[in-house]
């Protein structure tokens, strides 16, 4: 009887271990799967991330103390970026301890889970002319260029009746292959096919979305439907990424197709993007505790 009870107990323990192993393996597999899908055509806005390196500078600085400003730059966009980062503080020039200075940088685009980064240092800074304890803010501002081409597949057809293979009206979501992460990127595309006398008009509403931080002026967009030429985009001069997080641009082209076709919609974005990061510091006058 006792032997049987022991046997049953051992079997139960073995089963429990087995179940734990299965759950652990499943979790690992799931994580691996989701990780492998990340970064492939996500369409979410992302770009340069600026972080102050630890203790560079410290939050409290003494008068006449020399300090470095260390910045880590990470490129989370799917475009190569190059630009310039400048530092300054918010005090008047007569009492400022940070020399207004700039350095150039170049970072490769995000590739899978590989993110290119670089540390940049602005050295020999010092607050010497302070009359009392002061609070200041150090601002690091980057201005960089990004060029990306997105190529979502878009289908057209000669008539709008048959919906089985190619839909007349559809929205291409961020999960559609071909969309990329960038400071300003395409977040979705609404497509509609409109019959015309001897052709079909492909009309697209391209939703452009920018990162929460930063803004852009000097934004250029070019849209082409492979094999058929450039789309005509309206109201390009109304695009405003200084105050708006999202802009919608409407582009169209008439195509003459005899059968269903799926071709890439080549969207080229070129722009200069600006972003900044700041850190508050306290300057303690010499002699003060």
């Amino acid at each position: 009887m006792k032997t049987n009870k022991n046997k049953i107990f051992l079997m139960y323990q073995k089963q429990k271990s087995f179940i734990k192993i299965i759950i652990a393996l499943s979790l690992i597999l799931l994580t691996a799967c989701s990780a492998s899908q990340q970064g492939k055509g996500s369409g979410t806005p992302d770009g340069l991330h600026i972080t102050f390196l630890e203790l560079q500078p410290r939050t409290e600085l003494r008068q006449n103390e020399f300090f470095d400003i260390g910045l880590k730059l990470e490129n989370r966009a799917e475009c190569d970026i190059q630009g310039e980062i400048c530092v300054r503080d918010t005090l008047a020039e007569s009492i400022s301890g940070v020399q207004d200075d700039c350095q150039s940088f170049e970072l490769r685009k995000k590739d899978g889970n590989t993110i290119d980064s670089e540390n940049i240092y602005f050295t020999d800074n010092s607050y010497s002319s302070v009359s009392g304890d002061l609070t200041s803010t150090i601002i690091a501002k980057a201005r960089y260029s990004c060029s990306i081409q997105l190529t979502p597949q878009v289908c057209v057809k000669p008539t709008i009746e048959d919906e089985t293979i190619c839909r007349t009206k559809e929205t291409l979501s961020p999960s559609t292959l071909g969309l990329r992460s960038a400071p300003i990127t395409v977040s979705s595309i609404d497509k509609i096919l409109i019959p015309q006398k001897d052709s079909i008009k492909l009309e697209t509403s391209i939703h452009l979305r920018k990162m929460p931080e930063g803004n852009s002026d000097n934004f250029n967009i070019n849209v082409e439907y492979e094999g058929y030429g450039q789309l005509n985009c309206r109201d390009l001069d109304r695009l405003n990424f200084k105050t708006n997080t999202e802009n919608i641009i409407n582009c169209e082209i008439s195509v003459n197709v005899e059968d269903i076709e799926e071709n890439p919609l080549k969207i080229s974005l070129n722009y200069v993007y600006e972003t900044s990061e700041s850190k508050q510091i306290i300057i303690i006058k010499e002699g003060d505790k």
Binding site: I165, E226, G227, Y228, D259, I260, E261, E262, N263
Partner: peptide
């Protein structure tokens, strides 16, 4: 053959 731009 169809479904693609045959010229391309």
């Amino acid at each position: 053959i169809y479904g693609i731009n045959l010229e391309t």
